[in-house]
């Protein structure tokens, strides 16, 4: 089976996340509030050198 989104170069993960985000937006206010908190994702990173952690940096999705 071929998928229309595959034909324009979207990946399964990408499509799945679009779909999940759309689902979060179609919730009743209470549930939506909790769900939208999950939307924000980030990576916490630090570069280690000589056995010591460097500065901790937060990377957000739009900076990736």
């Amino acid at each position: 089976m071929s998928f229309f989104w595959r034909e324009v170069g979207l990946t399964y993960l990408h499509v799945s996340n679009i779909s999940a985000a759309a689902l979060r937006r179609s919730l009743k206010p209470d549930a939506k509030l909790a769900a939208l908190k999950r939307e924000e994702q980030f990576i916490k990173m630090a570069k280690w050198a000589n056995g010591k952690a460097g500065d901790v940096k937060l990377l957000y999705k739009d900076q990736a």
Binding site: Y12, S26, L27, K28, A31, K32, A35
Partner: peptide, 30 residues
């Protein structure tokens, strides 16, 4: 992520990115 697996021993694993109770759906927003 995003798979459901029916195992031979009758265990069923469902994994998805997001799932909500049907009662929490807002038709107006959709």
């Amino acid at each position: 992520g995003g798979f459901a697996i029916i195992n031979p021993d009758s265990s069923l694993n469902i994994n998805a990115v997001e799932a909500v109770a049907v009662e929490d759906l807002d038709a107006e927003a959709a």
